[in-house]
Design a protein around this nucleic acid. Structure first.
Lengths: 220, 220, 220, 220
DNA sequence: GATGAATGAGCGTTCATTCAT
DNA sequence: GATGAATGAACGCTCATTCAT
């Protein structure tokens, strides 16, 4: 994903067989990333684990990076689908806490499902070739996230706290992601999955949404 | 930085000339990371930019990774020094907001000074060899950060909000770091340095410290 | 050949083209060893002389050492085949002298065919990494040689002289090998191929086999 | 010892201090070869173990190879001194068996004193740069050995067996050396030091010297 | 003489990518 | 379309040797 993005992207696969091949490549990459680490994810190994030849792999992906790009797209779509769903109007009756908890939990599950992949994607996002076109996709994703969050905040006008919605969405998005990723690597004492979720929900809620009973809560 | 750190570390440089050489290598690495990206930071290029031969480079560093390790150590020390200073007892008279602002601003300056290096260090921290011993230094850093933050929270007992101090320190540390890093890469609209600082201070303050006037603020 | 033999051995070549490539690598290595000396046998040079790329070389051999290992195996097999044949039961009707002469002559031809390779293999056998597992293959070879020699000695029970058969086989094997090798290097006056053969046959015969008419032979 | 033998040899050291330095370098090299293996014997390590700087080392030896050359010379001298002594006229009254045993035992002790060095010297002797001037010293040594052996054989005219004395000396010399070296590496079962000595004495004696009682011995 | 920081040619090796079959 | 043998630029690293101090 990092290098050059040379030629035009290959034709999107249409046949059933093609779809199966692409799926096999995705699965193989994810599995290798999770079980063998990022260093093992060579094109040769991906092809081997996917059960296709290296030549076939290059028929579907222009580049090694194109595989990671596609996987990133897929994870982005999943995250967006989750958020669209939870923050959609039909759930807005719920309390802000319930909503934020649902988002954090959902994202947590997404991360836990393929930690190696998430780690690789995070690295990749940080590895932009100097001035390259990489962040385009990432920024697009961020914009979509921001749109969703703004919609959410707009819906709870009475209690929403932030004035700079873009900034708030950016901050929340990266903070949550980073903490989840960090726990994947460090597994610090006193921070199991439940505790992490509680802390993140609190972090987000206090930041984004007003908290009228703060005074009473002091006795914690 | 990722692999094994093979043999005993090279003799620590003692002579003046040696110190100059090591400095040149540090500067060259930082400059390459900032200006040419992480991929350009090969041993050959570092030596060339530092104006020394590849052999000299290896007289001071056992490994390519050892260079990054030393740079990481240096940045860690700087961050810790900053926090120790700002959070030390002699500053505790200040308001929590003033204190947190000082920390965020200080860290922001640290990051802005060498964004490429910070990015590389973040990548490196994510790149642990599968199950390897890498996070040792990183975890040690985290522990020290946590100790400092706990000290800070303890000093404002009346208003401190979190019960799980380790978790809170972990969350805050990674959240702040990630947001700063992300801005380095994406430079999103509506999030200049000042705005970023304000958002982060708010994020941290509301999360960590009680906010008695929250009720009155509702009308925002 | 000395170090670790890291990963699983590369897939054994199956296609005709593959076989040709492996042969080219073997031939190139042998030729370089014979004509340019052991120091010239770098992976780069081997690939160049073989007319393949360095990448292709590594598709067939895990290691530089793996090439020498395979060549050693091949030479071992040739020597064992020779001895099995000459010392097999179907030749036992011959006089001991005829048999030993056949062995010495056969080995001499093997050595003369690729003196540089033989020299390199001898060096390699001496180069065991300190306490390493290298001699495994070499010892296995020795054991097979010893087994064959013992069979031979057993067949001429009436005249065999040695009581410690293992020791005798070891001694003969290394003595013959060393003398042949030494002549390859030094080509001393008065020791042409015929003379060398005669001396070695005598050395072995007198050592291994009884010589009843020694008393009569005196007047030489 | 292997490479190029560039310039004229450095002035032979004359001062006491110089002698001490050279000795330290010899001892260091021998010790490293014996305890750490041939791969550890770099110029840097030799200088470190000898307690001198690398610059000083190069003041006494033109080359890395020059160190091994000098060590080879020293071992050659020791072997020759041993043989001159044992085979000298004043010992000729002894039986041939006693004489040969003394030689074999003496050489065995020389080898056992520094096996790593002996191994390195053997490798070195085999590693001649293609067509280089290396064997000159080795051949000179062989000539001296041959002279001594011829003198010995001449003294026992009645019983000496070989007609081609040069060849015989060459054969015996290399055979004995190789077997001793091989045992250093392989330590085969059933071949302890005493057994090895017995076998070698027998090998040499039967080859070189008439054995009138062979017939009677048959019952062995 | 002694020192040791500096040198750099050259090594073994990896892996994304191509293309003849 | 599928295959996988072939490619080769590029990397990290070693170590014998030099030379300014």
């Amino acid at each position: 994903m990092t290098r050059k993005t040379k030629n035009a992207p290959r034709n999107p696969p249409r046949q059933a067989r093609s779809q199966a091949t692409v799926s096999a490549i995705f699965d193989a990459t994810t599995r290798i990333l999770d079980r063998e680490g990022a260093e093992a994810a060579t094109t040769t190994r991906i092809a081997a684990v996917a059960g296709v030849s290296i030549g076939t792999l290059y028929q579907y992906f222009a580049d090694r990076d194109a595989i990671l790009d596609a996987l990133q797209e897929r994870e982005f779509d999943r995250a967006l689908a989750l958020m669209s769903d939870v923050l959609s109007d039909r759930h807005l009756a719920r309390s802000p806490r319930a909503t934020v908890t649902a988002v954090v939990r959902g994202l947590g599950e997404l991360y836990a499902a393929c930690p190696g992949l998430q780690r690789a994607l995070a690295i990749d996002a940080l590895s932009t070739t100097h001035g390259g076109p990489k962040p385009a996709r990432v920024e697009a994703f961020d914009m979509r996230i921001i749109a969703i969050v703004r919609h959410f905040l707009g819906a709870m006008h009475a209690t929403a706290r932030r004035s700079n919605v873009e900034a708030a969405a950016f901050v929340v998005h990266h903070a949550v992601r980073a903490v989840m990723l960090a726990r994947l690597l460090e597994r610090p004492a006193g921070l199991d999955e439940k505790a992490l979720e509680a802390e993140l929900v609190d972090l987000v809620l206090r930041y984004l949404v007003e908290e009228p009973r703060a005074v009473k809560r002091r006795a914690r």
